[in-house]
Write a protein that binds this DNA or RNA. Structure first.
Length: 577
RNA sequence: CGGGGCGUAGCGCAGUCUGGUAGCGCAUCACACUGGGGGUGUGGUGGUCGCAGGUUCAAAUCCUGCCGUCCCGACCA
């Protein structure tokens, strides 16, 4: 392609609405433009990258034994009512009605539709196992879209679903998909971790996320450098920390105006780790009035909402009781709460429950207890892991202390069990003619988010540094054509023709621009191999070659340039190329 | 949903407090010079100042409502 024939609207300055590197550079480089909140148009350069990632995803999925289909974006409400998710999905699913008042949603995911497809088409164990995927536009009405492509409302996702008669077959597919996603991310040249994750609204089984490590990531992953253990912070098990503090006598002290652990611990000259905090949340309602429960964690620990919401008896989604509800149920305000004498179900984090003597609110405004002992002063308490793990906590596999890194979730694989096949009445006949409910796996990969993730990891102060596998072009010929330099023009054109004929994807900058502009744009766009053709070199029969990543810079004799450059190839991309 | 910021030419911004003929840089168009890291000069194009209503002789500027957009927060006692 010649630059003169391609719309590449580069920007010298970053638009004010862009914050993170990927958003800024993709807009400045002319890859994407925003249409509305969380929705982007793919310009020619951006689309080439997107298609290349798609191509890699397809190649790896073929190896993993998946088959491609394409399912609709518009989905009927009835299917979602069958699975029970029409009511539980919440406002992130965009719903609308057609002219006949029939209800629909815009696909946020595809379990219902694929399960419906399966039950209509597959009837015998002979057709199992099977694994369908498609690459399709998804829409999720995110509460706060941000960071450009990283958290968009409309995005491109590869989602796949496998169906199995038994666990062994399922485990094989799950493991194949685990390998497949690792292979894809390696081909995208990304530094990533596969981590244990919380499946959230998708199911109740295990799940694994694939995180690209980047400081701008929205998730925190906890991992052990000493082993393979890695988990999303939402999921990472927090160890029980032992307490060898002597048991103390109970006392009640005035704490006028003190509402926070920090204030109370400073006043009492005790560390926050000798206090507990008591959070009041809504429990599953038993009909009459608000039903509440108390969650207790050590004062220097944070409640993990993701863990708390999975507790039996806690209302989903997790909601905290209002000040008024607390006042009326307990008779005290937030800031003076504690487990002593509390007539609510109490769930204590393991570490809090292991404390021998602690400080807590007295359930009476402006008063706290000190020297509280669970057995002596509280009694019946449920114990569960409900705190967030911290750096230096022992990893769940016992291999060593945890470290934290931020990550961008680009892939997530789930064990769905029979959640959908059962609720939607799917069965196939087994070898003996009996009806069996198949089990499912589900495998998502954010194609458009992966574009952002690559840029987050691969850029410098001048622009993007695309990995060869997905760069919009392999080689960038920068022709330093002054107006009178027809020799440069001719040499660059010949090089372009020969490389293209040799199968290299070449972008020829044939614009009538000054060298500085061309170099700056080339750095911004980030094509891996650059060849500069100028009068200076031509006089000596050479062109200049440089890699965008800075690892190589040298002169090439004009007559060996094609042979040298033809070695660099990237992945073929279907459709547009 | 709550709080805050912003909305003036394609992009980045000034002007708003204190009402009086709409500006700057970049981009863009023409011409000339220049030609190895965003060059220079001259002359142009381009804006119902987010929308609607109000106050006023007069509104980008003051008031009201709405819309858009970005950031923070959404109960961690």
């Amino acid at each position: 392609m010649r630059s003169s024939q391609l719309l590449i609207p580069t920007l010298r300055e970053a638009p004010t609405d862009a914050e993170v590197a990927s958003h800024i550079l993709l807009v400045r480089g002319g890859f994407i433009r925003r249409l509305t909140t969380g929705a982007y148009t793919w310009l020619p350069l951006g689309l080439r990258v997107l298609k290349r990632i798609e191509a890699i995803v397809r190649e790896e999925l073929v190896i993993a034994g998946a088959q491609e289909v394409l399912m609709p974006v518009v989905q009927p409400a009835e299917l979602w009512r069958e699975s029970g998710r029409w009511d539980t999905m919440g406002p992130e699913m965009l719903r609308f009605t057609d002219r006949h008042e029939r209800e629909y949603c815009l696909s946020p995911t595809q379990e219902e539709v694929v399960t419906d497809l399966f039950r209509r088409v597959v009837t015998s164990y002979r057709q199992l196992p099977c694994n369908f995927y498609h690459i399709q536009t998804k829409f999720r009405d995110e509460i706060r879209p941000r960071f450009g492509l990283m958290r968009a409302r409309e995005f491109l996702m590869k989602d796949g679903y496998s169906f199995h008669l038994d666990d062994a077959s399922f485990e094989a597919a799950y493991s194949a998909m685990h390998d497949c996603y690792s292979a894809i991310l390696r081909r995208l040249a990304l530094d990533f971790r596969a981590v244990e994750a919380d499946p959230g609204a998708m199911g109740d089984g295990d799940s694994h996320e694939f995180h690209v490590l980047a400081g701008s990531g929205e998730d925190v992953i906890a991992f052990s450098p000493a082993s393979d253990y890695a988990a999303n912070l939402e999921k990472a098990e927090a160890p029980v920390l032992a307490d060898d503090h002597p048991v103390e006598p109970l006392a009640t002290v005035p704490t006028r105006g003190m509402k926070t652990i920090a204030e109370v611990s400073e006043h009492l000259r005790l560390p926050a780790s000798r206090c507990v905090k008591t959070l009041i949340v809504h429990a599953d309602s038993d009909g009459e009035g608000p039903s509440l429960a108390a969650l207790v964690v050590r004062g220097d620990h944070e409640l993990s909402e993701a863990k708390a919401v999975r507790l039996q008896g806690i209302r989903r989604p997790l909601t905290f009781a209002t000040d008024a509800e607390i006042k009326s149920a307990i008779g005290a305000s937030p800031g003076s709460l504690g487990p002593v004498g509390l007539s609510l179900p109490i769930i204590a984090d393991g570490t809090a429950a292991a404390m021998t003597s602690f400080v807590c609110g007295a359930n009476e405004d402006d008063r706290h207890h000190v020297g509280v002992n669970w057995e002596r002063n509280v009694g019946n308490v449920r114990v569960a892991d409900i705190r967030e793990a911290l750096p230096d906590d022992m990893a769940a596999d016992g291999s060593g202390p945890l470290e934290f890194r931020r990550g961008i979730e680009v892939g997530h694989i789930f064990k769905l069990g029979d959640k959908y096949t059962r609720s939607m009445g799917v069965s196939v006949q087994d070898r003996d003619g009996r009806s069996v409910t198949p089990i499912m796996g589900c495998y998502g990969f954010g194609v458009s988010r992966a574009v952002a993730a690559v840029v987050e990891q691969c850029h410098d102060e001048r622009g993007i540094v695309w990995p060869e596998s997905i760069a919009p072009f392999t080689t960038h010929i920068v022709a330093l054509t002054g107006k009178r330099s027809t020799a440069v023009e001719a040499a660059a054109a010949r090089l372009y023709e020969e490389l293209t004929a040799a199968g290299v994807d070449v972008l020829l900058d044939d614009r009538d621009e000054r060298p500085g502009v061309k170099f700056a744009d080339a750095d911004l766009i980030g094509i891996p191999h650059r060849v500069t053709v100028g009068e200076r070199g031509l006089k000596n029969g050479i062109v200049e070659y440089a890699r965008r990543d800075g690892t190589e810079s040298r002169e090439l004799a004009l007559d060996e340039a094609v042979a040298h450059l033809a070695r660099a190839r990237n992945a073929p991309a279907a459709g547009i190329l």
